[in-house]
Simulated scan of single mutants.
Amino acid sequence: MSSKEAATPNARTPFVVPQFTAKDYTSFFLAGALCCTVTHGGMTPIDVVKTRIQVDPSMARLSLLSGGRRIIAQEGPAALLTGFGPTAVGYLVQGGAKFAGYEFWKKQFVQIAGDQDTAVKYRTAIYLGASSVAEFFADILLTPLEATRIRLVSQRNYATGLMTGFARLAREEGASGLYAGFLPILCKQIPYAIGQFTVNEFCHELAFRNMSEETKRTLSGPATFGISLGSGIIAGFAAAILSQPADTLLSQINKGHGPKGSMPHRLKVLAQQAGFRGLFAGLGPRMIMTAGLVSGQFLLYDVVKHGECLVLAGAVDMDCW
């Protein structure tokens, strides 16, 4: 918006909303699927150590490095790749649904806002709403595979891999076993998505806020990369902290640990048993893992989209739309 327009009380910024096609959403899905499966699959060893720290009392006070050394010493290096199959497949479908869903719901909420100024004013609500709704539907796809992964990691010799583990869990416990962690996974993944998308959006906004339009247009590749990487790392830290308590409870639930009864009751009892310290067990390794995950996902996602400007607040005035 120019200074002349800003000085005019009734001036309104032109309202431009992209009209995405099915091909666009397919591109978003494939980009999200690729970036999530590559990053989550690559982080499998760290995730194995983190999960063991959460579910094995003897490892509760170990660091990422010492925990990894202990697993390798006792079970061999291959143990650090336990659960790679369900991790890769689970986040392939979840990542595609999450990123494509975020683009879809963000667009819907912007349209509901009705005009550019209102969309800018309520952008935080738009980010929160779009990330939450997108994550809800993505988690329907993720939950059975995440349950399989945690069972493989927490129970040695449970199965030989994705197919056998999934088949055993489905055969022995049915849908109730596959979706036992749906509520805690929502409690984990929705705060995770909020931290991932909302904090990333605002980090970009903060970086661009004091730049002139000329500077934005001539921003070098390394500078753009640095902003994206830094924003992703900070968003990853936020996502890890917000979702850590539910992540710990999810590991306990899928391990088969805890009382019987309704899921809210089980979560309440497990949280009381763990206490504040226990709920944040493994936070250090998870922050490292999540910072790498989130920053890597955004960088890969932008590369796959090949620079399409689709971030709602990539610039303060939302000109990216």
Rank of each mutant, 00 (worst) to 15 (best):
298 F>E: 01
317 D>K: 11
66 S>C: 00
99 F>K: 03
232 G>P: 06
281 A>V: 04
31 A>N: 04
111 Q>H: 09
80 L>N: 08
6 A>Y: 01
50 K>P: 00
242 L>Y: 06
136 F>K: 06
76 G>I: 04
186 L>C: 09
169 L>C: 05
88 A>P: 07
4 K>P: 03
237 F>V: 11
119 A>W: 07
126 I>S: 06
55 V>A: 02
163 M>H: 13
242 L>A: 11
215 T>V: 06
206 L>G: 00
187 C>G: 13
62 L>F: 01
178 L>N: 14
95 G>D: 04
134 A>M: 13
290 T>S: 14
61 R>V: 02
2 S>N: 06
200 N>S: 05
183 L>S: 04
29 F>C: 08
70 R>C: 12
22 A>E: 09
135 E>K: 08
111 Q>V: 08
26 T>S: 08
246 A>E: 07
304 V>I: 15
286 R>W: 04
44 T>H: 07
91 Y>I: 02
26 T>H: 10
246 A>R: 12
151 R>N: 08
152 L>E: 11
286 R>N: 05
299 L>R: 08
180 A>K: 15
105 W>M: 10
157 N>V: 12
3 S>I: 11
93 V>A: 11
7 A>F: 01
61 R>Y: 04
7 A>E: 06
36 C>Q: 02
241 I>E: 00
260 K>S: 12
5 E>Y: 01
118 T>D: 14
265 H>T: 11
75 E>M: 12
184 P>G: 08
216 K>F: 11
19 Q>E: 10
213 E>Y: 04
187 C>D: 07
67 G>T: 01
123 R>Y: 13
112 I>V: 15
74 Q>A: 14
216 K>A: 09
129 G>R: 04
233 I>G: 04
35 C>I: 00
321 W>M: 09
221 G>Y: 02
32 G>D: 10
189 Q>W: 05
22 A>R: 12
320 C>K: 13
311 V>Y: 11
174 G>C: 08
16 V>K: 15
305 K>C: 15
31 A>M: 10
217 R>M: 11
84 F>I: 15
62 L>M: 02
156 R>V: 15
182 F>E: 14
239 A>V: 03
277 R>P: 09
266 R>G: 02
6 A>C: 01
56 D>W: 00
83 G>Y: 06
173 E>P: 08
125 A>F: 10
238 A>P: 05
231 S>Y: 05
122 Y>E: 06
224 T>H: 10
